[in-house]
Design a protein around this nucleic acid. Structure first.
Lengths: 228, 228
DNA sequence: ACCTGAACACCGTTCAAGT
DNA sequence: ACCTGAACACCGTTCAAGT
């Protein structure tokens, strides 16, 4: 219903790009818990509602941020040998997510965004097929690895966060203040069993998982007879 | 500074127990996202601040709720054979967490509460030792299994939540509204790769992982020579 | 078309006061 | 000792209006 189409009305001062840039700065420098629409608007010397003109809502904003980071290929060359390829893709996935300090915060509420790292996911499924699994089993193998990787990521994150505020998350304070007589388990091991999860721990676990998924027995029929 | 010690001052109308009961009701009937101190106070026909007299803060409240559920032994008898015992303990852990619909919401922000299911955790470590792993490797094995279990739990939860609101989380709406040309990966597989994660998928994966962790090669020295 | 301001319906938590 | 009310410093989002 307009004459030329483009270039009508007031010229924009904000842009989706500028918004994403600012949001990323906040995430990196202040952490995911400080990213809010209001805070972001302040950062841009604008009002909360101006943002809603460039982004549908906060969820879309987070989605775009995740896509921005994981969308760009990370350049690592994957090896050709199938098993090594599977391992390398998994490690690369973990690293990609670990290197955006906020990815975990975005993933936690809705974990299936896993798919946004498509290149690595398909690499993993293909490598699993090349290892001799049928398609169904290959997808299953990918999912097992993804669950392991996500779990490791989230646990490690929560430990780091706790340590960063020198051991005084509200949660930790709460654990410490519990009466050990009434809550023996929590009080006793408030974190002990989750020692430092290192990269080499992840790798060791990953190799065990992959070996397990590729073991000869993996080819047996899916509906194993129930034992009793 | 008081005469008899006990029974001084105004008689309590609220109690920690009553608060926890109400909180659980809200969690079960309305979901974790509706549990707030204010909402809970309203439920109890009281004020937000009255709660703080019985509970240090919201974190402690969640902690107590988790402990309440996972503290009570779930009665399942674990088999004696070590490998089966390991598997059964892991499955039981998953079930315990899966059956409190809010456990995931509590775990997500700080995943190391894993420890609150102490009986199963120690059962797993002990079973791993009985399977022939040394102590260090047994703890590592437990952690690998825990990471897998947590990841699976969170992914499954997020799918269920999405489905419950017949496929219309804000997040999903955001994914759908993305321009597929600009964000090909997310738009293409917005959920496809994370099909229905079933209990049998979990079990299959768990068995593969356990077999991998217990494979003969697991006994080789931890610092394997780097391949190149 | 792009932006603003005020408003709605919420949060967790602190502080000073009441009984 | 237990509870209340008002207040502080926040949220995400909608709606009506301005330029």
């Amino acid at each position: 219903m307009e004459p030329g189409g483009t270039r009508a009305g007031r010229p924009p001062r904000l842009s989706r790009e500028a918004i994403l840039r600012s949001a990323e700065r906040i995430l990196l420098e202040e952490g995911a818990e400080h990213l809010s629409m209001r805070r972001l608007a302040k950062e841009l010397r604008s009002t909360p509602m101006a943002l809603y003109h460039h982004v549908r809502n906060k969820d879309e904003l987070l989605l775009l941020l995740l896509e921005m980071h994981t969308g760009e290929p990370d350049g690592t060359e994957l090896p050709r040998e199938p098993r090594e390829r599977l391992l390398a893709a998994a490690r690369s996935l973990r690293e990609t997510l670990a290197n955006s300090p906020w990815a975990a915060a975005v993933l936690a509420p809705d974990a299936r965004v896993s798919a946004s790292t498509g290149r690595l996911v398909t690499a993993m499924v293909d490598a699993a097929v090349a290892c001799g699994l049928d398609r169904e089993r290959a997808v299953h193998a990918y999912r097992v690895i993804w669950h392991y990787t996500l779990g490791e990521l989230l646990v490690r994150r929560s430990r780091e966060r706790a340590r960063r505020q020198d051991g005084d998350t509200p949660w930790e304070r709460a654990v410490r203040s519990l009466d050990p007589d009434v809550h023996p388990v929590l009080a006793r091991c408030g974190g002990r069993l989750a020692e430092d999860a290192t990269t080499s721990d992840y790798r060791r676990g990953l190799e065990a998982i992959v070996d397990g998924l590729l073991r000869p027995g993996a080819a047996r029929p899916l509906l194993a007879p129930p034992r009793d």
